[in-house]
C-alpha cells in the first residue's frame, strides 16, 4: 500500500465533518462521544442502546498504542462501508493501561467476510499513519479542516 493509498483510504472513511477537537476526561467519555456521533448516521438501522452495548463489548480487546492512538471499532451488519469519526484530544486522555492517548479513530465496518480484508487494511493504515509525530502535528491544529488537509501529508 502506497502513501497516497493510505491518504485516500483515510479520506474515504473520515469526512471533514467527522473530525472533532475535544477535551474529555477519560476513555469512556471519548468512546461515548464518538459512538453517539456515529449513531446519528445509522440510527434508522440500530438503536443507540444496542449499538453502545456492542461497542462496549468490543472495546474490551482494544488497546491504546504507544503512539497515543486509540482505535475502538466494531463490525455491524448495518454498515455498508468503513465510516470513521476522528477525535483529536490535544490535552490527552489518561487511560487505565498507563498509556495516554491524543487521537481516537472510532470506526464501523461491514460485518461481511468479503469485507474483512479491507477492515484489516484500514487498521493497518491507521496504526501506520497515526504515528506519534503525526498525532502531535494534528494536536497543534485548531480547525477540523486543517486536520483533514493534513491527511495529504501522511508519510511525507
Amino acid at each position: 500500500m502506497t502513501v497516497s493509498d493510505s491518504s485516500l483510504m483515510l479520506k474515504e472513511a473520515i469526512s471533514q465533518s467527522d473530525i472533532h477537537i475535544l477535551a474529555l476526561k477519560d476513555r469512556r467519555a471519548v468512546l461515548d462521544f464518538c459512538a453517539k456521533k456515529m449513531h446519528e448516521k445509522i440510527k434508522k438501522e440500530i438503536s443507540l442502546r444496542l449499538f453502545l452495548e456492542k461497542i462496549y463489548q468490543a472495546d474490551q480487546t482494544n488497546i491504546v498504542l504507544p503512539s497515543g492512538l486509540y482505535m475502538p471499532h466494531i463490525k455491524i451488519q448495518e454498515a455498508d462501508r468503513i465510516t470513521a469519526i476522528l477525535a483529536i484530544l490535544p490535552k490527552g486522555v489518561k487511560d487505565d493501561s498507563g498509556q495516554d492517548f491524543f487521537a481516537c479513530v472510532f470506526f464501523i465496518s461491514p460485518l461481511k467476510p468479503a469485507f474483512f480484508q479491507k477492515h484489516l487494511n484500514f487498521l493497518s493504515v491507521l496504526s501506520s499513519s497515526f504515528s506519534a509525530s503525526f498525532i502531535k502535528k494534528l494536536c497543534a491544529f485548531n480547525k477540523p479542516s486543517e486536520i483533514y488537509s493534513a491527511f495529504d501529508s501522511i508519510g511525507k
Partner: peptide, 15 residues
C-alpha cells in the same frame, strides 16, 4: 478475528 486485527494493527505500527 481479534487475532488478525491485532496483527494488522502492529503490522502498521511496526513496519
Amino acid at each position: 478475528e481479534v487475532q488478525l486485527e491485532k496483527i494488522a494493527v502492529f503490522w502498521g505500527m511496526l513496519k
